[in-house]
Design a binder for these strands. Structure first.
Length: 723
DNA sequence: TACTATTTAATTTTT
DNA sequence: TTAAATAGTA
């Protein structure tokens, strides 16, 4: 067997991992060290060289994108499509199992998946229903609690209230929520994992079947697994399965949603004799960038320990810019982007990274002014749009009348005279009789309600029945089209003024074409419609349609994980913003922020800019802030301070460790005001800086105001806005 | 029921 | 500041 194509161009560590004997293995793969590569080559190695059947391989990722990439790369390597190879997200694979074993899982065959938005609505409704003082209970917190418990694998009966009435109430909410879901055949994201775990745990035959089938378990981003995902893996592996986990403890940034890096340590205990391979050679960044990243992450205590290196170039120094305020920061970044583009580089090769989404605003304004195309990551995705979810809710009702989540969503949308009163009556009937809203509606419409409301409700029910009847037997996309037509949603959105309504109608049309191009899996037992609906929930689709214009990429550091760009700006590098105020109080939180910083730095391939603002408007208030402590953790020798042409030391800065560095030539405390800089003053209006002098509290600038003429102002009192 | 005023809170996000 | 949720009004 010629193994050249599979082992070719792998370094020693990668090769060791790929060709490891069939025993548990843990690959600690640093940023840019070829993590996906190892995973893909391992799969190809097993299939092509070890003669393992693709059937007995299971590959798990966290995102659909990663799963799709892995499949296509494996197929490219093997030069053939791999059927019967299970590659998917934890949720996708769990869903697959539950569809196959819905009976054992205690679910109706046509169960539906609800997303977090549906889940939140359901909880809000539950609160209203239980007639509980909702000022004391924030739906989001209840959602957080429920998901947190599920992530840990806990059912209400497993949880102890510790004598805490608060907690007892939360558990009661959890229990009530579960009842509604069970009645409506609704499964939330965490429930997919939990049930998939339970169905294996409680069915010896099933477990045996899957253990027999999946010999090799390949796991991507292992540091991001939560308790239930890990438990599921362990269960599947048994003591004969061969888990092959790839991850990076230094890139664990999702603790707050249940991910536990500790699984990396646990893995070695649970699977004695685990082979640990570290991938430390980096193929992405310059030595300067790597050394900076290494130095920052070295400040964390809880680490496996690893040091990235490259045999590539040293590269440019990391540029640190201290901006006067957030607008100056944006201006600076835009200036650099202009240079970058002028040098013939692609805009898409540059990225601006920030800690929180709100920071994108100023940057976007600047980019719009400068006419530089950009794309902001995150935000609403296709299947999450309100109009799409409305249409899907109708479709879901045609499949399952008892889906309360969908029922409540569209019962009065478009408005059809079924108001809050009527809905309340249905709710209490449903609660009293432990039945779905649909059945409650039927019961109420025939006796309790007065004529008008009863008719409206009956009309709604007739509509749904009609949808189901008339679309029966139609092709999926015709079904979708017809249901949208009957729902009169289009007419409803036409009333929306402006472009909004138009976009919504376009999106509904887009939904029909999405259904047209959807290819149901013939192996699945469920109907094409149910499959389409599950797909919509599990893969929310792209955020922006025209993703492929060449544009500057704006995103949070979290969403940048896994990506790389030749030019990277990390902005808003201020204590309080990054590390975020809410994380600095405990060591765990701070370490996670530092890992996030590590992720940010290691996104950069050639050139990295780090910027911060001395003054930033947050929540409508001007705040002074210190440069992020993470900047101080980058050794000086890797940094080049970028200073404005004329410097004026700024007052109002308490002495801090950062400031001490100023004496040794490391700035951080000076702020720049350029001559010729346009500024705005509260009273005097707009003007241009002519002159500057003085240090510290005495720093003054001469400004020629358009209306008020030339004035000398003390910087610390004038509160000038740079423009 | 829809529109408008007022209050409130303000990381990070995939499935 | 601003966006979203709630309360109050036409």
């Amino acid at each position: 067997m010629d193994v050249t194509p599979i082992l070719d161009r792998l370094n020693d560590a990668q090769r060791e991992a790929v060709t490891a004997p069939p025993e548990p293995a843990l690959v600690i793969a640093g940023a840019g060290s070829g993590k996906t590569r190892v995973l893909v080559h391992r799969a190809a190695w097993l299939i092509d060289v070890e003669g393992v059947s693709p059937q007995s391989l299971l590959a798990v990722t966290f995102t659909n994108k990663a799963a799709a990439e892995m499949r296509s790369r494996i197929e490219a390597l093997l030069k053939m499509p791999v059927q019967h190879l299970w590659i998917g997200t934890f949720h996708g694979l769990a869903h697959r199992m539950l569809r196959r074993h819905w009976r054992e899982a205690g679910l109706p065959q046509n169960f539906q998946i609800i997303d977090s938005d549906d889940q939140l609505r359901l909880i809000k409704r539950l609160l209203k229903n239980l007639e509980i003082d909702d000022s004391r209970w924030v739906p989001k917190e209840i959602q957080w609690f429920i998901n947190g418990q599920k992530d840990e694998g806990l059912r209400p009966s497993h949880i102890d209230d510790d004598g805490d009435p608060n907690r007892r109430q939360l558990i009661a909410f959890y229990r009530a929520y579960e009842e509604i879901c069970q009645r409506g055949g609704l499964v939330d994201f965490a429930e997919l994992l939990l049930r998939a775990h339970e169905v294996l745990r409680d069915n010896a035959e099933l477990l045996e079947h899957y253990r027999g089938r999946f010999k090799h378990l390949l796991v991507d981003e292992f540091q991001d697994t939560n308790a239930i995902q890990y438990a599921w893996l362990r269960l599947l592996a048994g003591d004969k399965g061969v888990p092959f986990a790839v991850g990076d403890d230094d890139q664990s940034i999702y603790r707050w949603r249940g991910a536990r890096v500790e699984h990396i340590h646990r893995f070695q205990k649970d699977f004695p004799g685990t082979r640990v391979v570290k991938l430390e050679q980096n193929y992405r960044s310059t030595a300067t960038i790597l050394n900076a990243a290494n130095a920052v992450i070295a400040n964390n205590q809880a680490r496996m320990g690893k040091n990235l290196w490259t045999d590539g170039a040293v590269g440019e120094l990391i540029k640190v810019y201290s901006a006067y305020n957030e607008r100056d920061e944006a201006d600076f970044i835009i200036g650099r982007l202009r240079d970058w583009i002028a040098q013939g580089n692609a805009r898409a090769d540059s990225a601006i990274l920030y800690r929180s989404n709100a920071q994108s605003r100023v940057l976007e304004e600047g980019l719009i002014n400068a006419r530089i195309p950009y794309r902001v990551y995150g935000g609403l995705r296709f299947f999450e749009r309100a109009e799409i979810k409305d249409a899907l809710a109708y479709l879901r009702l045609t499949s399952n009348r008892d889906d309360d989540s969908s029922f409540e969503r569209v019962v009065n949308r478009p408005t059809r005279g079924i108001g809050a009163r009527t809905v309340d009556m249905m709710r209490s009937y449903a609660r009293a009789n432990a039945c779905s809203m649909w059945r409650a509606a039927g019961a109420i419409a025939s006796d309790e309600l007065n004529g008008r409301a009863a008719n409206a409700l009956k009309a709604f029910m007739t509509l749904i029945e009609r949808m189901a009847r008339e679309t029966n037997g139609l092709e999926l996309h015709d079904k979708v089209d017809h249901v949208i037509h009957l729902s009169t949603l289009v007419a409803f959105f036409e009333k929306d003024k402006g472009e909004k309504g138009e976009t919504r109608i376009e999106n509904l049309a887009e939904l029909v074409s999405a259904a047209k191009s959807f290819e149901p899996d013939p192996a699945e037992e469920m109907s094409a419609l149910d499959e389409f609906l599950s797909h919509a929930a599990l893969e929310a689709g792209e955020g922006q349609a025209d993703a492929w214009e060449d544009c500057v990429q704006l995103m949070t550091m979290h969403s940048a994980k896994g990506l790389e760009f030749p030019l990277v700006f990390m902005c808003g590098m201020e204590d309080g913003l990054f590390p975020h105020q809410r994380s600095v109080s405990d060591a765990n939180g701070l370490e996670e922020e530092r890992r996030l910083c590590y992720v940010g730095i290691t996104r950069a391939m050639q050139c990295l800019y780090v910027t911060y603002a001395e003054q930033r408007r947050l929540h409508g208030m001007d705040n002074f802030s210190q440069p992020s402590r993470f900047i101080a953790e980058i050794p000086n020798k890797h940094i080049e301070e970028i200073r404005p042409r004329v410097q004026v030391a700024r007052p109002l800065r308490p002495t801090t460790p950062t400031q001490k560095r100023t004496a040794t030539g490391r700035a951080g405390s000076e702020i720049g005001v350029r001559l010729g800089q346009r500024v705005r003053h509260n009273k005097f209006g707009e003007g241009v800086i002519l002159n500057a002098e003085g240090q510290g509290a005495h720093a003054r600038v001469e400004v020629n105001f358009e209306v008020a003429g030339t004035k000398w102002l003390v910087l610390s009192y004038a509160n000038l806005d740079l423009m």
